[in-house]
């Protein structure tokens, strides 16, 4: 059975049909790409999958569980984490704390324990620190643990966002244009990082990307969106050679 099963998903904003009859089926462990021209509705699909927008029609199943219309926080607990096209870090907190916020639901102690610093506070905080540093070290960010998140250079901010998303221990990770604003070298590093986290964290990945080198390099399957509708879907090589896709997006 597939990990993510989306059927006939659609959303209207007033008279505008932003996404219509969107279907996708992602198997466990897959690296899936969502591409298409600007304004095609890719980020809107992400926003529906994470509950930021409530879909007008259709169903979303994660691991067999219906998560359609649930709250964002609940969907995260169910197993979907994401990053944003315009980076959304907790800028006034340290790199370490950003990841620890991601660990919030995995390591618990009550507010009173925190206020009165009971023994459990120290024990849990220590475990959280260790786990957070472990995640950061995968990205080579452990050296910057004490830096304020907003003071990180752009590329590291993108990586920190992925680290924070992974800290919530997701089954499915949604990456919204992870290579945006990166130079070819950074993009290459990013491809390696994505391959690494797929192995290390045993996570399925759905990503939006415009960088065709990255898409053709790492994605196993693709869905192409155009004007809110699926234009083409299937194996990466087949889709990229689809004449419709070439005409609408890639250019002849």
């Amino acid at each position: 059975m597939s990990l993510l099963e989306v059927t006939n998903l659609g959303i209207s904003f007033g008279g505008l049909r932003a996404v219509d009859e969107f279907n996708i089926s992602i198997d466990k462990g897959q690296l899936y790409g969502l591409i298409g021209p600007n304004g095609a509705g890719k980020t809107t699909v992400f926003n529906m999958l994470t509950g930021i927008y409530k879909p007008t029609d259709g169903k979303i199943f994660l691991d067999g569980v219906d998560i359609t219309g649930k709250r964002t926080a609940e969907i995260n607990k169910a197993g979907i984490a994401r990053t944003f096209q315009n980076i959304r870090l907790f800028g006034d907190q340290s790199v370490l704390d950003n990841v620890k916020i991601g660990l919030h639901n995995s390591f618990e102690y009550s507010t009173a324990t925190g206020i009165f610093r009971l023994p459990k506070y120290f024990a849990t905080e220590k475990k959280m620190d260790e786990r957070a540093l472990e995640i950061l070290s995968v990205f080579g960010l452990d050296k910057d643990a004490d830096v304020l998140a907003s003071n990180l250079p752009y590329g590291k901010q993108r990586q920190l966002e992925i680290a924070r998303a992974l800290a919530t221990n997701p089954k499915l990770l949604l990456l919204d244009e992870p290579a945006a604003g990166m130079n070819p070298n950074e993009t290459k590093d990013l491809m390696n990082t994505i391959a690494l986290i797929r192995k290390e964290f045993d996570v399925t990945i759905l990503l939006i990307e415009h960088d065709m080198k990255l898409v053709s390099g790492i994605c196993e399957k693709l869905t192409v969106l155009n004007f809110g509708r699926v234009l083409s879907q299937g194996e990466t090589s087949t889709v990229l050679n689809d004449p419709e896709v070439i005409k609408a997006y890639l250019g002849e």
């Binding site: 709250r71 959304r88 907790f90 907190q93 991601g102």
Partner: peptide
């Protein structure tokens, strides 16, 4: 504390806080 971090996260970016 854990709660305080969450409160600060909500202050810094509510949407991101929800998605984690």
């Amino acid at each position: 504390s854990r709660t305080g971090r969450a409160v600060k996260a909500i202050r810094d970016n509510q949407i991101a806080a929800e998605t984690v």
